[in-house]
């Protein structure tokens, strides 16, 4: 190496070191910041009671928002995974036309690229207004489901595509149908990985705000009794508490609870993947 190149090498090393340190600091800072500020407002009462005070949210807790968010996640996962598993199974096991496969991939990719606020707009006109579902748990849940559909589809398709071809052939060679092969062999075999993907996607759904602003989230609602009730959700609650300047202290608490729930979901998903690998 000549002198110039030595300097370039030096700059290169500084650059990559700086990058890595920046990324790590940002991660630590965000988690640290929310933890330090939020920990003092989170207690049993905060988690298990209704929001109170005037304006509402200045006192009390976030229980309906926690439950609302979990419900939203469940509905979104149910809706999205049904469609996503079907699409993935179709493309991997039934579609024998490369062109159609390519088109499916392009469409899924485009759907993944649609911003969540536009999905919110779509949910608002189609579900809330045209289908008269109103601003409700169901409307918001389905909208979130549409949002996570591409995420789940891509990953489940990958799992199925990488499934052991010899095993699938052995099953066909026994004269066993695709249906039976799928439900009795392939899906049970990879269920941990599949559930892991769905769980992770559920986490995304739970954290999303934009799709539910117009389709179902409200400032205050009790724990939802039916699919048609409007709901509170953690991310929306956090946005309102901050945006409207209602209570910074409660906002920190809400942010911490939201992050902790998502962290648990993430860890759960990782554990599922790891035990899935050991299982196979």
């Amino acid at each position: 190496m000549d002198m110039d190149d030595r300097i370039r090498d030096y700059i290169f090393k500084i650059w990559i070191a700086f990058s890595a340190i920046t990324v790590i600091s940002v991660i630590v800072y965000i988690f640290g910041y929310i933890f330090v500020h939020g920990i003092s407002s989170v207690d049993m009462e905060f988690i298990f009671s209704q929001p109170k005070g005037m304006p509402i949210g200045t006192e009390g807790g976030i229980f309906p928002a926690i439950v609302g968010s979990i419900y939203l996640m469940l509905i979104a996962c149910l809706f999205a995974s049904t469609l996503a598993i079907a699409t993935a199974v179709y493309t991997v096991f039934y579609c024998d036309n490369k062109r159609i496969e390519g088109i499916i991939h392009l469409i899924v990719k485009c759907m993944a690229g649609i911003p969540s606020i536009v999905l919110g707009l779509f949910g608002y006109t189609l579900l809330v207004l045209n289908l008269r579902l109103g601003r409700s748990l169901l409307s918001a849940g389905i909208t979130l489901g549409i949002m996570i559909y591409p995420y789940i589809e891509v990953r489940i398709e990958k799992i199925l595509r990488e499934a052991d071809k010899d095993i699938i052939d052995s099953s066909y060679a026994l004269g066993v149908s695709k249906f039976h092969t799928l439900f009795k062999l392939i899906l049970p075999l990879y269920k941990r990985d599949i559930i892991s993907v769905i769980t992770l996607a559920g986490g995304f759904a739970m954290g999303a705000t934009a799709p539910i602003i117009l389709t179902g989230a409200v400032l205050f609602a009790p724990v939802p009794k039916s699919l048609s009730s409007p709901i509170m959700a953690l991310p929306f609650h956090l946005y309102i508490l901050t945006g409207e300047g209602i209570s910074l202290e409660k906002a920190y608490g809400t942010a911490l609870v939201l992050i902790l729930i998502l962290l648990i979901i993430n860890i759960l998903s990782i554990v599922l993947t790891i035990t899935g690998k050991e299982h196979n």
Binding site: D166, S170, S171, L185, L189, N280
Partner: peptide, 12 residues
């Protein structure tokens, strides 16, 4: 029936 070159027991 058919048996393949590589043993292919199902992982069950």
């Amino acid at each position: 029936g058919m048996v393949f070159q590589k043993p292919t027991p199902f992982p069950i």
